[in-house]
Write a protein that binds this DNA or RNA. Structure first.
Length: 281
DNA sequence: TGCATTTGACCACT
DNA sequence: AGTGGTCAAATGCA
């Protein structure tokens, strides 16, 4: 899974940006690549440790690794932005000022094209686009120009209830055929989750429970979305998808939630590491 | 019947 | 004018 942020994306995709005092992108790219590998490894290891007393510890270790790399990226990003600041900031402000005053003839409609410099934009590439532990509802699908597969649009299930503005788009990459290589999806998150789950707990801290529940209910009122190999979004309740994936991973394995933010920060003490090693990995 | 998804249309942005 | 994001009616499913 490759993590990016909006500025990183926009800068890497355009050539008109002024040169940087120092370019942290290679380092960020490598860290992101490490995150991708760890996430994929976690998707393999954790299901195998189900009902094992070590599973929680292993999950926390994985999360600690991901937290470390996320912080590293954040730090690099901070320096990156400071270096790039100057006329770029002025341009951003101008754009922002223009973008704010969106007037529409239909007051109920809020059709506003996203800007590439959205500060809350996070992009990642992952074979498991639905493993973010959040609850999403699909609200659209569109074929994007020069892409083989359609892009699916999701918004937070709690958008209406709690006015959560988080959205995401999922698109299968053109070169991921699914025959020799795992399907790779580009997932782009927009906005921050401001919602809490039904228990009144921040959903980001209780994703494991909520997601497990939604995947077991045949038709729960809230569901976590995933994307099938054809790029058409379905829900975790979709048994057809389960059938198609059954030869690779078991149902429970496939839908085990892996939210990067699902576990709180966890500082591994040495005894815990020793215990894990003693148990044998 | 209620909820989630699908899909064509609308509209902002480039 | 083309593209992409969102809306909302239609549709499907349990």
């Amino acid at each position: 899974m490759k993590l990016h942020n909006s500025r990183y994306l926009s800068q890497s995709s355009t050539s008109d940006h002024p040169s940087f005092v120092s370019d942290h992108r290679p380092a960020m790219k490598e860290i992101a690549r490490g995150q991708s590998l760890v996430t994929q490894l976690r998707a393999i290891v954790l299901p195998a440790l189900q009902a094992d007393c070590r599973s929680e510890l292993v999950a926390q270790m994985f999360q600690s690794i991901l937290d470390c790399s996320s912080k590293a990226i954040t730090e690099l990003q901070l320096h990156h932005e400071l270096d790039a600041r100057g006329d770029g900031a002025l341009v951003d402000d101008k754009k922002r000022g223009r973008g704010e005053e969106v007037t529409t003839t239909h007051p109920h409609r809020q059709l506003k094209r996203r800007k590439s410099d959205d500060p809350d934009l996070v992009s990642l590439e992952t074979p498991v686009p639905h493993y973010d532990g959040r609850q999403w509802r699909k609200y659209g699908q569109k074929h994007i120009n020069k892409t083989k597969y359609p892009r699916s649009y999701y918004r937070c299930t709690y958008r209406q209830d709690q006015d959560c503005k988080a959205t995401k788009t999922v698109q299968q990459q053109d070169d991921s055929t699914g025959t020799d290589h795992p399907l790779i999806y580009t997932v782009i998150y927009h906005g921050q989750h401001t919602c809490k789950d039904n228990n009144g707990v921040d959903s980001g801290t209780n994703d494991y429970e909520t997601n497990t529940q939604s995947s077991s209910d045949s038709r729960s009122s809230k569901s976590t979305t995933c994307t099938d190999p054809d790029g058409y979004g379905t829900t975790l309740d979709d048994n057809k998808l389960l059938d198609r994936s059954a030869d690779l991973i078991t149902e429970k394995d496939l839908y085990e939630p892996f939210d990067l933010t699902a576990f709180g920060n966890f500082d591994l003490d040495s005894w815990e590491l020793d215990a894990l090693l003693r148990f044998g990995a």
